[in-house]
Design a binder for these strands. Structure first.
Lengths: 408, 408
DNA sequence: CGTACTTTGTTTAGTAGCGGCACAAACTCA
DNA sequence: TGAGTTTGTGCCGCTACTAAACAAAGTACG
């Protein structure tokens, strides 16, 4: 009965530090129920409950109290957790050789809305980025949903920390164009909420595949892809992109994969870039590439329409051998626990998975003992989803701070 | 005057979670004073004070209340922090082609005592490891100091998580020898306190250089070295060794650096291994290696006694060009912010630093813009110090748990 | 040589963010 | 229907911190 006041407590006295990790678990589909969330976070049920309630109050996830069928297990059924499909979205943008594309991406990596990719060949980055941001702004307006930020996937290495595009070769953009700055400026100008980010498209594809696709659960994930000209690589270590000290890691295009191969603009010859990209494939198959559709599309068409054409078979074999040599070199250096292939490389893998795996195993020193799993990409528009991941990252790191709200 | 007991406090009610980070700061020389420690930890002065007092009570560091000369700055002089030179030690062991070496290493990476390396060529790992552990145990007995654990540097890739030596080529050991297990067993048998660890020597050298040598402050540190036959690599990312998913990362020996080069046992030709190791150097210089001392020592002697010999100059130039090509390939893949060279590669760098830097800058895509700093190793016995780091790591992670003491 | 200022260490009080526990709730199984 | 199992929730208290006031130990300057 003394006058000692009970300490006044705010509504949320638990789980503040676990909010980010918890959201990430739901975001990546690793916490389907509250019970799993409790185990994954390594906290008590009380804390996990507070966390889930807070994330629901923030409009980010839904906690389904009505489980219905509990499917076989004993005990009280656990509440289901899912991302809130009516929640905020990230604006994702991608520019590539054939044009651009804008989309809204919700938590969980689900594409909510897409603007059809327009073909806008322009040597002025500001013009193209302005167009893609405007398309995204229209989608946002239409949807009426809150925006957590914007992300751009660029088909070029992006230098850190400047954010300049170093080799926007097939965009006809000036080398060193400050794409991050231009994109951020356009996003601001369009009145879009939240911060703006820019990254390399293969890096972002790898990030997306790691969180929502074929890379789930990998610790050291290597991703290699080729879309138009040249080859891109990316590495995700412990769930984080390894971009290197200046953003230029995994520029794998100039690994030597054919000492007697064709000359490369880098001064060497037989580089991965010129030996395994779509142009190399079409050339090896004895085709003359036309200007109508992208080189990747022409390669795909060729592979699908005439897989048994002798020239195509020879080309597939040659490119697989070269790609395998490059991958083996990367395995010796990076020792990843999974490899994911995109673009034409993915098609090559599909065409003859055993041959590619055999080359990698044979040419990597330790690949023989089991071998590294080599898988195709599984996400549609993975670069776009990865761009959205950039925008979602602050929310995943600290939901309260990123959404600018007080705990409810 | 009511019966409400004041909450009983243990002696240390602060800084328990900051103990490890604080010790690491002192260990790596980044916290010379308590004021710096406060800033680096991002805690209040009160917490930092409690942390320093606790670490001192644990016998790990010394807090010097008598600063004496405060050197120019205003305000109250800060207490100086230093590792306790009378504190516990780690037992470090190294085996290499010419024998083995045992040492005691204190916090801060200082070698407290060394047993002279003995030449013991034996095909039996248990025998060699037994001998080196016995030498270490004798050092420990002599010093009378507490041991926190033992670490072994092996001249071979160490597979994770098995701990087997995959290619102990120049030790005449059987491939796949369970060195980690054997070493741990010998450590236990010798009655040495604490856990036992095993790692690759170049990896451990990189770790040591990152914490105490030329790699301090680097975020992405690449280390390349050659000692006898073959080339080793290591990568330290954000202060942690990147060993890859199965411990086999940075097996850089089979990068192609000379398409028309000599054949390698891997089936390819012109690999970094056979083009830049001491044997390659002696051969390129037109010398016939003798059996008396190690190939590295013969190379060093040659470089020091006849640096202007035409054959030597040609050999230096050739090997620098090949090494530069290999480093450039690694730069394109890893984009490190610093490169450290050891063994013969260090000598090559010393012989003509400009040439090596020029080759790397010219052949790496982005090296032109500034270029990666390439530095020689600075620590004596860095593999040995790195082996000790393995043993120190549990203490750095959680001093109270590792030393098995209650807070004082 | 004393006063003002600067910087660092210490003491005390308070509190955020958890864990632990007891209990309630919601299911399965026999 | 009751026992067993698993999950959610309210309450208490602890631990490791922060905040703030104060004390200590120097420099700068008249």
């Amino acid at each position: 009965m003394n006058g000692k006041a009970t300490t006044t407590r705010t509504r949320l006295d638990r789980g503040r530090n676990a909010l980010g990790p918890a959201l990430e678990l739901v975001h990546t589909g690793r916490a389907p129920t509250r019970a799993v969330l409790t185990a994954e976070l390594g906290v008590t049920r009380a804390t996990a409950g507070a966390v889930a309630a807070e994330l629901e109050a923030l409009g980010l996830i839904r906690v389904d109290s009505n489980p219905g069928a509990a499917a076989g297990s004993q005990g009280r059924p656990s509440h289901r957790l899912a991302v809130d499909e009516k929640g905020p979205v990230a604006l994702a943008a991608q520019v590539h050789a054939d044009g651009f594309r804008a989309a809204l991406v919700g938590l969980g990596g689900t594409i909510v809305a897409t603007a059809p990719g327009c073909v806008t060949v322009s040597a002025d980055p500001a013009q193209v980025l302005g167009a893609v941001v405007d398309a995204g702004a229209a989608l946002l307006e239409e949807s009426g949903r809150r925006c957590v930020g914007a992300g751009l996937a660029a088909p070029s290495a992006v230098a850190e920390p400047e954010g300049t595009a170093l080799n926007p070769l097939h965009l006809a953009w000036p080398a060193g164009a400050p794409v991050r700055e231009i994109f951020a400026e356009r996003v601001r100008a369009a009145g879009i909420e939240g911060p703006a980010f820019t990254g390399n498209d293969v890096n972002l594809a790898a990030l997306a595949e790691h969180r929502h696709g074929a890379g789930r659960g990998a610790r050291d994930l290597l991703c290699v892809a080729t879309g138009h000209r040249g080859v891109g690589g990316a590495l995700v270590l412990d769930g984080r992109l390894h971009t290197g000290s200046s953003g230029l890691a995994l520029e794998v295009g100039h690994l030597t994969v054919n000492p007697e191969g064709r000359p490369c603009h880098c001064g060497s010859r037989g580089c991965l870039d010129v030996e395994t990209d779509p142009l190399a494939f079409l050339t090896a198959a004895g085709r003359v590439p036309g200007p109508e559709v992208s080189l990747l599309q022409q390669s795909r068409d060729l592979l699908r329409t005439s897989p048994d054409d002798p020239g195509v078979r020879v080309a597939v074999g040659e490119l697989i051998d070269r790609l395998g040599l490059g991958l083996a070199g990367l395995v010796n250096i990076l020792n990843p626990d999974r490899i994911i292939l995109g673009g034409l490389h993915r098609e090559l893998l599909d065409a003859d998975p055993e041959r590619l795996r055999a080359v990698v195993a044979d040419r990597s020193l330790w690949g023989r003992s089991g071998g590294v799993p080599i898988l195709p990409c599984t996400l549609d528009h993975n670069s776009l989803v990865g761009a959205a991941e950039l925008a979602w990252q602050p929310v995943l790191d600290d939901p309260l701070a990123a959404l600018g709200r007080e705990p409810v």
